[in-house]
Write a protein that binds this DNA or RNA. Structure first.
Lengths: 96, 96
DNA sequence: CAGATAGTTTTAAAACTTTAAAACTATCTG
DNA sequence: CAGATAGTTTTAAAGTTTTAAAACTATCTG
C-alpha cells in the first residue's frame, strides 16, 4: 500500500479532535492513572465536572475509538484503548 | 517533576487542534514529502486551495509550533518543526 | 516609479462545539 | 413495585472555527 486513503485521515482527524480539549487530555491522563472504578460519577467528581458534561466528553473519546466502555450494573466503566494509541499515536501516552 | 502543569496541556491541546482537520494533516504529509519550495502558492496549487485559506491553515500550524516559516523574497517557505513532533507526538510522523 | 506577484488580514456568513439544565432510560435495593 | 442511583439524551444559548471574497502589505522586475 502506497497511497493513503482519506478514510484513514478522517479517523486521524477525529482522534486529534477528541484530544484537542484540555479537559479530554486530563481525562486520558486520569484513565491512565486510575485503571479501575472509572465510572462517569468518579471521573466527574475527581475532575469537578457536571455528569452530563462527563458523559458528553466520554462519548467523543469513545467515538474516536480512544476508550472502551463496559457495563457493570448501573455503572459504566471506561478504559483506554491502548491499541488505538499505539497505532495512531505511538509513544504519545508516555509523554503525558 | 511530577505534577503536570496545565500550561503544557494547553500546548498539547493546541497541537491536537491544529491536527484535527483532514486538510491540515494532508498539509503535514505534503511538507514531509516536499522539503523544498514549500510556498503558500505551491501548496495551494498542489492541494486545490484558495491562497487565503492556505495562509489561514499554515498560521494555525505555525501557532501550534508545528512548522517554521522563513522568508525568501516575496515567498515564504514552510517546513515541519520536527522537534515539536518528537517532543509531543514521538513516532507520529512515521505513521503518516 | 508602476505594475505584477506572493502572501496576509479583515470580514461576514455558515457550520460546528461546548456547556448546563431538564427530561429521560436503565438498573439496583428494600 | 417505589424510590434511589447512574448515566444518557435533548435542548438552547454561548462560543469557536472554517470558508472565500475583498482589501491590504511587501517585495520584485522592468
Amino acid at each position: 500500500m502506497t497511497i493513503k486513503l482519506s478514510k484513514e485521515d478522517e479517523k486521524r482527524a477525529k482522534i486529534f479532535k477528541a484530544l484537542s480539549e484540555v479537559k479530554r487530555i486530563e481525562m486520558i491522563r486520569y484513565l491512565r492513572a486510575h485503571r479501575s472504578n472509572n465510572t462517569c460519577g468518579t471521573i466527574g467528581e475527581a475532575m469537578g465536572m457536571d455528569k452530563s458534561n462527563v458523559s458528553y466528553h466520554l462519548k467523543i473519546l469513545y467515538e474516536a475509538d480512544l476508550i472502551d466502555v463496559s457495563r457493570a450494573g448501573q455503572n459504566r466503566l471506561s478504559q483506554l484503548k491502548e491499541d488505538t494509541f499505539n497505532e495512531f499515536l505511538p509513544g504519545f501516552l508516555d509523554t503525558l
